[in-house]
Design a protein around this nucleic acid. Structure first.
Length: 636
RNA sequence: GCCCACGUAGCUCAGUCGGUAGAGCAUUUGCAUGGUAAGCAAAAGGUCACCAGUUCGAUUCUGGUCGUGGGCUCCA
C-alpha cells in the first residue's frame, strides 16, 4: 500500500495500519504534534485505519483543521464533565469557534460561576483519565435508538433532520456524542483550557424556541499559549471604544438621557467634525450634492413610503401636531424623494447624487445596544442616486470604489464584502428586477476584483444590497458601507423623468452609506487606532506644557497663535511639574507635546516630543507649525 | 425582547455574616518653581442606581423597575 505525502513523495504502509502509526514513520515530532489528518479529500482521525492507497496530509494545532478538531474535542471534554456533574443536562450542540469552543445545554437551573469552576475541575480529571476517543458508525435507526435510551431529545431532533443512512458517534469513557468528527485521539491531548463565559442561547438560534445555557471556553496545547491568548483578550479590552471614549472624553451615554442616545463631548465632536469635513469635501469632489432634511415628517409620507407597513417595529410612536400624525424619521429617503418630486427631470440631468448627514432614530431592542456601535439615534452618511438604467453599472462601480477609498483613508484594509439577496418574508418588487439588480451588484464587485460572500435573503425589503463590514477590536464584524437598490420608493412615489423619447420613465434609485453611521464608524475607528488617532483626526493635535509660572504667558500666547492657524491646541498651564504634565499628555494620546521653558521662550522655539517617542527635539516655532500643517494636509 | 452577571465618590475599585462607608487617581487649597511618564501636605467629595417589602433598624436580605456588561435573536 502506498501513501502519497503533500510534497509528492511516497511511502509504503501496511494495509490496515492506523494513520497515527504511518505518521510515526514520517517523524516522531510530527507524530506527537499531529491532531488529525486528511486522507485523500477527507478529514480523518489519527486512529483511522488506512486500507487503500491514499494521499495523506497531517494537521497539527498550527493548521486551521487542527485547531478546529482540538477545540471541538475540548467542547466534548466539557460536555462530558457537565454530564458527570449534571446527569439531567440535555446536550444540544457544541462546535469549535474562532479561538475556542462552546457547548449548549438544556439544564433545569442555569450554571453559576461556582458550577463553572467545578466543571473545569472535572475536565481536568477526565484529561488525567486519558480516555481514548473512539469513532463509531451507526445506522440512523440505531443512532436514534441510542440517543432515545440516553434521553437526548435535541440529538434526536438533529438526527431526524439529517438526510443520511448512517451517522458517526464518538465515545470517550461513558460519554457519547453524535458527531461528524474528527477528534484528537485521547482526552489527555487537551492540555490547557479555560471556561470563559456563561450565556443564554436559543436552540437553533430561534428566539421562539427553548433558551439553552451556553458555556464558552478556549483550549491550547501549552499553558504559555493559553496565557498569551488570555493576555490578548485583556489587550482587546484596553482598546474597547467604550473605555477609550470615556478616557479621552469623546462621548457619553447616560441613563438619564436615555439608552442608545449619544452625547458627543467636545473632544469627540472635534473628531467627528474632522471626519465630517473630510466627508463633505470628498462628496463634492466626487460629483455629489449635499442636502438637508427635517427630523420628523407627516404620517402620510411614511404611509406612502411603505415604512409604516414594513418598518413600523423600528419606528417610534407618532406625535400629534395640530391634529396630524408625525413620525421621527428612521430613514432619510422619503425626504430626498420629495426633493426629487418637487419638479420634473430630464435624462440629461442624470445621474443625481444627493448626500446628507442625516440623523435618524430607530427602535432597537434593549439587549442589542452596544456603546457607539449599536445605538437608537444615529447620523447616517446617506445618499440617494437617481439614474437611467444604462447609467446604473457605472454608478455602482463609482459608489463601490468611493466607498473603498473612504474606508482606506481611515486605515481600514481588513473588510468583508457581502452581497445580500431577496428576503424570504416581507419584500416588494418583481422577481426579475431583483435578479437583474443582484446581477449588476455582483458584476460590479467582480470588476472591482474584491472577494465577497453571498448573504442569502439578507437584502432590505425594498431591494438587494452590497454590504461592507469592518472588524472591531474583538474581531466582531460591523456593517458600515451599504449600497442598496430601491424598487419600492420610485414606484410608491411615482417618480419619473423624461427620456430622449419624450416619454416618462421610472428612474433607478440607489441608496448608499459609506461610513454607515457616524456613531458606529467612529466606534470602530477608536478601536482601530486604539485612541491614538493620526494627527489630522486627533481632537487635540498639540498639547503645550509650560515648565514654570514665568513661561505661562508665552505658552498661552503660542496656543492662541496656533489656534488662529487652524490647529487644535491645548495648553497645560497648571502649576505642576513638567514630568506630571508630560505624563498627563501621554495618557491623552496627543500626537505632539510641545514643552515651553525659559530657553524656548527666549529663542522663540519649542521642544517637541512626538507620540510614541521618549525623546524631544527643539525647533523654531514657525518650523513646527509648518511641519504640522504639512502632515495634516497629507492626512498623516 | 430572552439567559446570566453586575450597579458603592468624577474615574478604578475595597467593604458592610443587617447598626447609614473606605483607598488610589482626579478636584480644591497651601507649600515646593520643578526640563520630558506621577514633588509634598491638607481639605472637600457618597439618599451605597431607583421603588417597594421584611426588620427596632436595609447600602447589605427579598421582590420589582431602570441601566450596564457578556451572549442569543434582530440591524447602520
Amino acid at each position: 500500500m502506498r501513501i502519497t505525502l503533500p510534497d509528492g513523495s511516497e511511502m509504503a504502509a501496511e494495509k490496515g495500519q492506523a494513520v497515527y502509526d504511518i505518521v510515526g514513520k514520517i517523524g516522531k515530532k510530527l507524530q506527537k504534534d499531529a491532531i488529525v489528518a486528511q486522507l485523500n479529500d477527507e478529514l480523518a482521525d489519527l486512529s483511522h485505519k488506512v486500507t487503500a492507497n491514499a494521499s495523506l496530509k497531517v494537521f497539527t494545532f498550527k493548521n486551521p483543521e487542527g485547531k478546529d478538531a482540538y477545540w471541538h474535542s475540548a467542547s466534548h471534554l466539557m460536555a462530558q464533565a457537565v454530564k458527570r456533574l449534571f446527569p439531567d443536562a440535555k446536550l444540544a450542540i457544541g462546535p469549535s469557534i474562532e479561538n475556542g469552543f462552546y457547548y449548549d445545554f438544556d439544564v433545569e437551573r442555569s450554571f453559576t460561576p461556582d458550577d463553572v469552576q467545578k466543571i473545569e475541575a472535572e475536565m481536568a480529571k477526565i484529561v488525567a483519565e486519558d480516555l481514548p476517543i473512539v469513532r463509531e458508525e451507526l445506522s440512523m435507526e440505531k443512532a436514534i435508538e441510542l440517543f432515545s435510551s440516553l434521553n437526548e431529545p435535541y440529538k434526536i431532533e438533529l438526527l431526524r433532520d439529517l438526510d443520511a443512512e448512517s451517522v458517526s458517534i464518538y465515545r470517550q469513557g461513558e460519554f457519547v456524542d453524535l458527531c461528524r468528527g474528527p477528534h484528537v485521539p485521547r482526552t489527555s491531548r487537551i492540555k490547557s483550557f479555560k471556561l470563559l463565559t456563561i450565556a443564554g442561547a436559543y436552540w437553533r438560534g430561534d428566539e421562539k424556541r427553548q433558551m439553552l445555557q451556553r458555556l464558552y471556553g478556549t483550549a491550547w496545547p501549552t499553558a504559555d499559549e493559553l496565557d498569551a491568548y488570555l493576555k490578548m483578550r485583556e489587550e482587546v479590552e484596553r482598546r474597547d471604544h467604550r473605555r477609550i471614549g470615556k478616557e479621552l472624553e469623546l462621548y457619553s451615554i447616560q441613563e438619564e438621557t436615555g439608552p442608545g442616545l449619544v452625547l458627543w463631548h467636545t473632544k469627540g465632536a472635534r473628531l467627528r467634525n474632522s471626519i465630517e469635513n473630510f466627508w463633505r469635501d470628498e462628496h463634492y469632489k466626487n460629483g455629489y450634492d449635499l442636502v438637508y432634511s427635517p427630523h420628523i415628517g407627516r404620517g402620510q409620507l411614511w404611509q406612502t413610503s411603505g415604512h409604516l407597513d414594513f418598518y413600523r417595529e423600528n419606528m417610534y410612536s407618532s406625535m400629534d401636531i395640530d391634529g396630524q400624525e408625525y413620525y421621527v424619521k428612521p430613514m432619510n429617503c422619503p425626504f430626498h424623494i420629495m426633493m426629487y418630486r418637487s419638479r420634473g427631470w430630464s435624462y440629461r440631468e442624470f445621474p443625481l447624487r444627493w448626500a446628507e448627514l442625516g440623523t435618524v432614530y430607530r427602535y432597537e431592542r434593549s439587549g442589542v445596544l452596544h456603546g457607539l456601535l449599536r445605538v437608537r439615534g444615529f447620523t447616517q452618511d446617506d445618499a440617494h442616486l437617481f439614474c437611467r438604467p444604462d447609467q446604473m453599472p457605472e454608478e455602482i462601480d463609482r459608489v463601490l470604489s468611493f466607498s473603498l477609498y473612504m474606508l482606506r483613508s481611515f486605515g481600514f484594509n481588513d473588510f468583508k464584502v457581502y452581497l445580500a439577496t431577496r428576503p424570504k418574508e416581507k419584500s416588494v418588487g418583481e422577481d426579475d428586477k431583483w435578479q437583474s439588480a443582484i446581477k449588476a451588484l455582483e458584476e460590479s464587485v467582480r470588476r472591482a476584483g474584491i472577494e465577497y460572500e453571498v448573504d442569502e435573503g439578507g437584502g432590505a425589503f425594498y431591494g438587494p444590497k452590497i454590504d461592507i463590514k469592518i472588524k472591531d477590536a474583538l474581531g466582531r464584524e460591523w456593517q458600515c458601507s451599504t449600497i442598496q437598490f430601491d424598487f419600492n420608493l420610485p414606484e410608491r412615489f411615482d417618480l419619473t423623468y423624461i427620456d430622449r423619447d419624450g416619454q416618462k420613465h421610472r428612474p433607478i434609485m440607489i441608496h448608499r452609506a459609506l461610513f454607515g453611521s457616524m456613531e458606529r464608524f467612529i466606534g470602530v475607528l477608536i478601536e482601530h487606532y486604539a485612541g491614538r488617532f493620526p494627527l489630522w483626526l486627533s481632537p487635540v493635535q498639540v498639547q503645550i506644557a509650560s515648565i514654570t509660572d514665568e513661561t505661562v504667558d508665552f505658552a498661552a500666547g503660542l496656543r492662541d497663535r496656533m489656534m488662529r492657524e487652524g490647529l487644535r491646541v491645548e495648553a497645560d498651564l497648571r502649576n505642576e511639574t513638567i514630568k506630571y504634565k508630560i505624563r498627563d499628555a501621554i495618557e491623552k494620546k496627543v500626537p505632539y507635546i510641545g514643552v515651553i521653558g525659559g530657553k524656548e521662550a527666549a529663542a522663540n522655539s519649542i521642544s517637541v516630543r512626538k507620540r510614541g517617542e521618549n525623546t524631544s527635539e527643539s525647533m523654531p516655532i514657525d518650523e513646527f507649525i509648518a511641519r504640522l500643517k504639512d502632515e495634516i494636509s497629507r492626512r498623516l
